[in-house]
Design a protein around this nucleic acid. Structure first.
Length: 805
RNA sequence: GCGGGUAUGGUGGAAUUGGCAGACACGUCGGUCUUAGAAGCCGAUGCCGUGAGGCGUGAAGGUUCAAGUCCUUUUACCCGCACCA
């Protein structure tokens, strides 16, 4: 019987032998597998972590037996709000809480038997680690990619913190679910938009699942179009808009700008209804993101009384409107409105009785009804009412119009992105300090590299200020410093970096975790290159996965790392749901604690069950009975011992079964189809149980292929059977294809598509021979009696279908 | 609104290019062992039907000798984005 003592015995031996340690100087081929390092929360390890890590765990144990030098590291992404909030509540220093939680996680991970390289553990809150996070920030600053800007940012009033776009998706705070508001604030930003094209192109050279790729593409949201300058009537000034439809320029009947557009402020003296506009802006600012979307069907706006806009292609004057369906944050904050061919402009024009001019017609040239909706379905449309582009297809008209704009100096071709720059500042204590000093004379001055790390000072309390100031601002002895450039008194930046900073490059630090001179040595970077397989959750696709690809590509551009992309292959695991089929949550009381399973059934039971639960990429509900089934299987494996004999009892059938299961399991592991791999091993064990006695040669490879899933059980049995050495040192078994094919094969025979009988034929029979055997089979004569055989379809070694009528 | 995904027995889930639907496991039932029970081992188990046979992969059509798989229409649920100009 398998029990926990076996776990403890082998975990001790593995630790003593340090057998999962990766070496940096090796002639062996490298294999670098990465799992998203956990945030060490007080709740401890979750079964979801176990599933996420097990995928890579199995691959790594297999690759080691295949002779690869495997890097499978673990660390802790330990800066973050929950620890800080706990500190605020209890007064316990985040350092203490973090250390406590990391110790707990470490113990839990070891009890499951993960084959991590425990010599390479990293902790993002360790000054020796964040020294290099700060170093990368300085490099970004040096290259103009980190800048300070007064802008509208997402602010969570509950957490009193600024959030990046990626952290406030749907207008809701990632952490606490409260509504975020727009707040004007001067903050650090990273120019990720400069890397938008590189991030898109990089997707071509990596192997990401289609939905991961698609989500990133949508998030970056590149669109092609034109920027067009409209002039203000009787003014020197111009109003620039972005459009993806320059071909509809003759269809413009009004212009619209966002309530925050600077043009309004600039011409407030000439705008007769400025008060009305101001009131509208205040109303719009009060609406939450949610309300804006909810109310989107009912368009609102105010006509600007006193300004008119001139269409640059025909000189026509059109009115200017202010409306909150135009966003300051996208494009130029202004649009040319073509109600005939845009749903939103259409709704707006209908409501405010604005003209529409149709400029795209059906392919047959007919105009369409604009009674109920805009005509946007223009795949094969033809341009009308548009002077020099009349008669052209939409595609040709776009090109010709852009040429015209460029020639007449009134516009240009333009790419636009949905992605915005990364708000890179938190007003909190438990984060990396930004290594910048504010000097009255020199401006923003970076610290010298030799002054890193800039460590966190001790503070009296961790509560952020009322208006979202960092707690660091209260530590005067730390804030007051001297300018690294001119030596005069200066102040430190008191914002800290966001939680995503440390995780944006951690995969590099694993390569050389204790290096004091660089993020990692050149030798280590050149040997390990990048991650071969990276497994993690879908929730990080538009956050961590984008951020870290950005930083890595930047480090490549400045010559620090040897590859463009950090991860060659990405995989994702599905959620483990509670036994009730709902997402596990404390409030629902359906959380399964991995410790309980390990304690009661052993680590290998947890491992086996988690992999057998279903397709690795799909969600699956937890089942206590399923856990028992996994335990039963492992006990059955242990009891094979009683069948083993030294006598020679080989058989062709067993040879076939053995070679087949080695082949299937080896391939399934590579494809991350762990559930079917385990099913195949269960079937093989069932076959062994049908034998009176089994010679060792049928058991040894089974233990090896099962080892990545159940390392404790298989090492134990390996030792009991006196095979010699340890499994983890043994070589992955090979299979003999010739033993898998048999001389005679069984082929099902269908009559009109329904299987009626199975015939046995030599495996090398051709179609004619198979057809002959099938038609002469006595058991099938009843079906064919008196009927005409219309057709016989023979698919070699697959199936026969006799069509009668 | 747009984009993506999922749907298979009582349950979790299997099914290369269209080629035996339900592998494997859970559960249930039966046998064996036992004073008895538990565990173990062996067997049965999609549905209807005594049977022959018929029906079966969310629903409705279609293509095909053959459809879970391809095409059209549609329903439910899940995920992502969301006035993207």
């Amino acid at each position: 019987m398998y029990d926990k003592k076996i776990d403890e015995k082998w975990q001790k031996i593995w630790a003593e032998k340090n057998c999962f340690h990766a070496v940096n100087n090796s002639d062996k081929e490298k294999f670098y597998a990465l799992i998203e390092f956990p945030y060490p929360s007080g709740a401890g390890l979750h079964v979801g972590h176990a599933r996420a890590f097990m995928g890579m765990e199995v691959l790594c144990r297999k690759k080691r037996m295949e002779g690869k030098n495997v890097l499978f590291p673990i660390g802790f992404d330990a800066f973050g709000l929950p620890t800080e909030n706990y500190a605020i509540k209890t007064g316990i220093h985040p350092r203490i809480v973090t250390d406590r939680n990391i110790a707990k996680f470490t113990e839990q991970l070891k009890s499951i038997g993960f084959s991590f390289d425990w010599d390479r553990v990293i902790d993002t809150t360790d000054p020796n680690y964040y020294k290099w996070t700060q170093w990368i920030f300085l490099k970004l600053f040096e290259n103009g990619l980190a800048y300070k800007d007064k802008t509208y940012v997402n602010y969570c009033p509950q957490c009193r913190v600024i959030l990046a776009n990626e952290e406030s998706q749907g207008g809701v705070c990632d952490r606490c679910d409260s509504q975020i508001v727009q707040k004007e604030k001067e903050v650090w930003m990273l120019k990720i938009t400069d890397y938008a094209d590189k991030l898109l192109e990089g997707l071509d050279e990596v192997n990401f699942p289609p939905r991961v790729r698609l989500e990133q593409e949508n998030w970056i949201g590149r669109s092609y179009g034109a920027e067009i300058d409209f002039s203000l009537a009787n003014k020197e000034d111009k109003l620039t808009v972005f459009t993806t439809r320059p071909d509809t320029l003759f269809g413009v009947t009004y212009m619209a700008i966002a309530p925050e557009h600077p043009l309004l402020e600039k011409y407030k003296d000439e705008i007769k209804n400025y008060d009305e506009i101001l009131a509208y802006r205040n109303e719009a600012a009060k609406k939450s993101e949610f309300e804006r979307v909810e109310l989107s069907k009912n368009k609102t706006g105010v006509k600007v009384d006193g300004l008119e806009i001139v269409n640059p292609v025909n000189g026509k004057h059109v009115p200017l409107w202010v409306t909150d369906y135009v966003m300051m944050g996208y494009g130029t904050g202004a649009i040319m409105a073509v109600p005939a061919h845009d749903t939103r402009d259409f709704e707006f024009a209908k409501k405010f009785n604005i003209d529409m001019i149709q400029v795209v017609a059906n392919s047959n040239g007919e105009e369409v009804s604009l009674e109920k909706e805009a005509y946007t379905d223009i795949e094969d449309g033809v341009i009308i009412n548009s002077d020099f582009i009349n008669g052209l297809s939409v595609k040709d008209a776009k090109a010709k119009m852009i040429d015209y704009l460029v020639q007449n100096n009134i516009g240009k071709q333009k790419k636009n992105y949905h992605m915005k720059d990364w708000a890179f500042a938190r007003q909190r204590y438990w984060g990396e300090p930004v290594p910048i000093v504010k000097c009255e004379h020199c401006g923003l001055v970076p610290l010298k590299e030799s002054d890193l790390p800039l460590t966190l000072p001790e503070v009296e309390d961790f509560v952020p200020g009322e208006d979202g100031e960092s707690p660091l601002a209260k530590v005067e002895s730390w804030v007051n410093t001297t300018c690294p450039k001119c030596g005069k008194p200066a102040k430190r930046e008191t914002d800290t970096m966001p939680q995503w900073a440390g995780s944006s490059w951690y995969f590099l630090r694993y390569m050389d975790p204790n290096n004091n001179d660089a993020i990692a040595s050149k030798e280590a970077l050149n040997y390990w290159k990048n991650v071969d397989c990276y497994n993690g959750g879908m929730e990080h696709v538009t956050r961590h996965l984008i951020y870290s690809r950005f930083w890595h590509r930047f480090l490549y551009d400045i010559g620090v790392v040897p590859t463009k992309e950090p991860y060659q292959k990405r995989s994702t695991q599905g959620l483990i749901l509670g036994p009730d089929g709902n997402k596990m949550s404390k409030s629902k009381g359906n959380v399964v604690n991995p410790d309980d399973i390990v304690k009661e059934y052993g680590a290998d039971t947890l491992r086996t069950y988690i992999l057998f639960i279903g397709d690795y990429g799909m969600a699956a509900p937890w089942s206590e009975n399923g856990v028992k089934g996994a335990k039963k299987f492992l006990d059955r494996v242990m009891r094979i011992e009683s069948l083993v004999t030294d006598e020679d009892c080989d058989s062709k059938e067993l040879d076939k079964e053995l070679n087949s299961v080695i082949k299937k399991v080896s391939q399934d592991y590579e494809d991350m189809k762990y559930n079917t791999a385990i099913a195949a091993m269960m079937s093989y064990v069932n076959v062994l149980y049908k034998q009176e006695k089994v010679s060792k040669k049928y058991v040894k490879p089974l233990l090896q292929i099962l080892n990545p899933v159940a390392p404790h059980v298989t090492e134990e049995l390996w030792q009991k059977l006196n095979i010699g050495g340890y499994i983890f040192e043994s070589k992955w078994p090979e299979y003999d294809e010739s033993k898998i094919v048999s001389d005679v094969i069984e082929i099902p025979v269908q009559i009109n598509g329904t299987v009626r009988y199975r015939i046995n034929v030599p495996s090398d029979s051709d179609e004619k021979e198979i057809e002959k055997v099938a038609l002469e089979t006595p058991a099938l004569q009843n079906y064919m009696n008196g009927k005409e055989v219309k057709k016989v379809i023979v698919i070699k070694s697959k199936i026969v279908n006799i069509v009668i009528g």
